[in-house]
Write a protein that binds this DNA or RNA. Structure first.
Lengths: 260, 260
DNA sequence: TGCGCAAGCTGGTATATACCATATAGTGTG
DNA sequence: CACACTATATGGTATATACCAGCTTGCGCA
């Protein structure tokens, strides 16, 4: 494709009208957005290289780069270092009100969810865990970090902490499965309530590399405290999601006072 | 401050150790992150200009820009066109399980929440509203868009749609207040359950300008369907938040089956 | 005193260029 | 056939430079 064809496309040749006074890099952004929207570029399809785009559209490589960086920041494409840029796949849905295992539920919906255990260790509760899990300072916890992929594409990384006293020998089990199930089957700990928090933040260095994110990119952190019927917390989890990878849903129910 | 002082700071002069093999723009990123973290730069404090940073740290302006763009993408600073860059204020908390008005609740917690009505009109339900509000195609709805500021800093923009038939004359009321309250007081419509969805996405053009976001930046969309006790939806809302402006929390409760 | 204009500052866009490190594919050799 | 090397392409970092548009400030004039 050459610049003339881009002009053609941008001016509405394929039915997509674009304001003509946009900066050039924004025109390229719009062009690829429309290509993704109309299905010309599908999930994981490679985009042209920076140099190719610069040449084709008669802009400098840095300008092409600005366009691609913008597409990446908005979540439309992801990049792999020295390999290329690719179209971001569709989001997965995560119902946080549903306290049964996300893993099991996702797989039953046809998702091909793979788990990679990054790290697993026993350690001592720090200040945060003391608060979240209601432990005494220095109490032992099992901590394990797992990377979750959907169809081979990394979507989030999770670190969970479980009370070691209540779950002896926890790490000896296979962690390539739903830990909610594990806790229920082996330790008779079943989730009754959960406190969930969601926020957008920058990825840490480890998250950046595990999720092959661009440097300095943001994503979604979801933390979860799981309690048993007596209200005691037995598991604390922190997930960091690629921002464009998920849609979180929840159900709220107004609590009626006892006088109702 | 000159380059030598930056080097000094980066190498641990102020107690902050930074890997020496980082790219130069990342060193600047780290430097400002630490300045924000240790309180040397507080909420809304101005950062040096691109040119000033370039000169002080002996890097080109484009490299300084890369650093500032990174800080902005990560949510640590926000920029105002041709005015400067400033430190992002602290997040506000939003409990989505709490179905009473966010506005009223936030103000009672000491937040100075201001509302600006951007648009208010009567229109006809499109396909999305037909589904979300359970209306017949072409049914009338009131639609209004409001911008919310905290201490003068824009944090999110919301568009709500209410069933016009159930809420006659809705737009004649003052929209600078909690609409949850309004619906309850004037139309006897009180929230019983809500379906909430949260996802990270790119800002639209209007959101970008209302929230004075950088071009192509991402934020958080929160949609909410509010239902009465009979399960009928009477209000659909869509909020778009600055990504770094909020922390959303929710409470999940496992639903026991009737056999329990 | 108050208004208006100009200068200087800011961020935003854009180009051209250079070099680096590595992923990938193609080539050649044992 | 298997392995090692090499050429090429890719994204990542960095510089120097130029111009634009609009916000702020301060100066000078009425």
């Amino acid at each position: 494709m050459d610049a003339a064809i881009l002009e053609h496309s941008l001016k509405g040749g394929d039915g997509h009208q674009v304001p003509i006074d946009l900066p050039r890099f924004q025109q390229v952004v719009q062009y690829f957005k429309s290509q993704i929207a109309n299905g010309s570029l599908t999930e994981h399809a490679p985009l042209p290289s920076e140099r190719r785009i610069a040449e084709d559209y008669d802009i400098s490589r840095m300008t092409a780069r600005r366009a691609l960086d913008a597409l990446e920041a908005e979540g439309f494409v992801y990049s792999e270092d020295r390999r290329g840029r690719f179209v971001t796949p569709k989001r997965v849905s995560y119902d946080v009100s549903n306290m049964v295992s996300f893993v099991a539920e996702a797989n039953s919906r046809g998702l091909a969810l793979e788990i990679e255990v990054v790290r697993a260790m026993k350690s001592q509760a720090d200040a945060i865990l003391v608060e979240k899990l209601g432990l005494e300072p220095g109490a032992e916890v099992y901590a394990y970090t797992r990377l979750f992929r959907n169809n081979g594409h990394a979507i989030f990384v999770e670190t969970e902490y479980v009370n070691a006293q209540r779950c002896p020998g926890f790490l000896e089990h296979d962690l390539h499965q739903s830990t909610t199930r594990l806790l229920e089957a082996r330790y008779d700990l079943s989730a009754s309530t959960g406190d969930i928090a969601i926020l957008m933040r920058a990825a840490t260095a480890e998250e950046t590399s595990l999720l092959s994110l661009a440097r300095n990119s943001a994503g979604i952190e979801l933390t979860q405290i799981i309690r048993d019927a007596s209200g005691r917390a037995f598991c604390f989890g922190r997930q960091f999601w690629r921002g464009e990878a998920a849609r979180f849903s929840a159900r709220a129910i107004v609590e009626r006072s006892v006088n109702d």
